[in-house]
Amino acid sequence: MTVNEVSKIANISVRTLHYYDEINLLKPHKLTESGYRIYENEQLEKLWQILFFKELGFKLETIKKIINDPQFDKEQALMQHKKLLLEKKKRLNKIINSIDKTLKEGFDITMIDTFSMENYEKYKEEAIEKYGETAINTYKKTSKYSKKKWEEINKEANTIYKELADNMDKDVDDPYVQKLIDDWRNHITYNYYECTIDIFRGLGNLYVADERFTKNIDKTKEGLARYMKEAIIYYCDNYQG
């Protein structure tokens, strides 16, 4: 099976498969005389394991240990990660509900408790201690957004969506695609909250894991949510700071 065939079956880019080969995560079964990669069932099974653990949020370095080290306790690692995912799921559901409420009613400062804070004053003290006034000012700024401002934010978001959709024929590591992904991260940071690499990676996974996100993003073009997820993961994996 060629690299292009594997790419279509696994719904990942050819460049990603090349990268896995380069870092010795997934080597092809053999190379043809012309230098083309050929994969067999053994490599496909290994790829399934890689994608499975990656979907759970494991980093590539950890995945290499999981699938190559016979002493690595896969069951224990999965149980621990499942526990963390369930906690994240609970938190993300609260955030999603908050977003839905914001879209319908506008931002309310009392919704800060969505972010695991018992009340505003407690959050304010903790946020100022850790991040300074910027943390509070971000929420205060958002609470003052007018209808026109929200329209501008949505327009900018839709512009990035459309531009990404128009370039889905490119691999996710394409420089222009990565620029658009960087624009998307900046859009989130500028208009909502500081979008760290960890948060951005989580959002990318959420675009596919949560059908509400998928449905909304795919309104622009079918498959855009998954494409954005892969592009975001590549961005995060290669972010230099």
Rank of each mutant, 00 (worst) to 15 (best):
I109A: 06
I50A: 05
Q43I: 00
T214E: 14
D182M: 13
M117Y: 15
K59Y: 06
C236K: 09
I232G: 03
W150T: 08
S143R: 11
L31S: 04
Y176T: 08
N4D: 12
N191S: 10
N137W: 07
T138Y: 08
K124F: 11
E118A: 07
K124I: 10
Y139A: 01
Q76C: 08
R212C: 00
L78S: 03
E42Y: 08
K54V: 00
N191Q: 09
K170R: 15
I66Y: 00
L44N: 02
E40K: 05
S13K: 05
I233K: 01
C195M: 14
K144Q: 14
Y139N: 06
K140T: 03
D218S: 02
Q71G: 04
Y207R: 04
K149L: 07
I66E: 05
K144T: 12
T32Y: 08
I109V: 14
G106H: 09
D113Y: 06
P70A: 11
D169N: 11
G204Y: 12
L203E: 14
D73R: 01
I136S: 10
G204C: 09
S143G: 12
D113K: 13
T196C: 05
T159H: 10
T196V: 03
G35L: 12
Q80P: 00
F58K: 01
P175Q: 11
Y120R: 08
A127F: 05
I67Q: 04
S146E: 14
G106A: 09
N24E: 11
T142F: 10
W150H: 14
I197M: 10
D173K: 13
I96Y: 15
K74S: 06
K221H: 11
T159P: 02
Y20D: 04
N4R: 12
Q76L: 15
G241Q: 15
I160K: 06
M168K: 08
G35V: 13
I128K: 11
Q178G: 05
A135G: 03
K83P: 01
P70W: 10
K140Q: 10
A157N: 14
L44S: 03
Y176V: 02
Y20W: 10
V3A: 05
L60K: 03
K82E: 00
K94W: 08
Q43N: 06
K83V: 07
I67Y: 04
L92T: 15
D21G: 00
D218I: 00
E129N: 10
Y193A: 07
N137H: 11
D166Y: 07
W184T: 09
G223N: 09
N68Q: 08
D173F: 08
K88R: 15
T16V: 06
L25R: 06
K90W: 07
D174W: 04
K221A: 11
E5T: 12
L26H: 03
N137F: 07
I197Y: 08
A209N: 11
H81F: 06
I9N: 03
P175T: 10
A209S: 13
C195Q: 13
M168T: 05
K144A: 14
T134F: 09
D169S: 13
D171Y: 00
Y123I: 03
K65N: 12
K122W: 09
K141G: 04
I38G: 00
P28E: 02
L103W: 10
A225K: 01
Q178W: 03
L31F: 14
E156V: 02
D171R: 00
M1N: 08
K155N: 12
Y190E: 15
I96P: 06
K46M: 11
Q178P: 03
L203W: 12
K179A: 09
I96N: 12
C236Q: 09
N97G: 14
E5L: 04
K147L: 11
I232C: 06
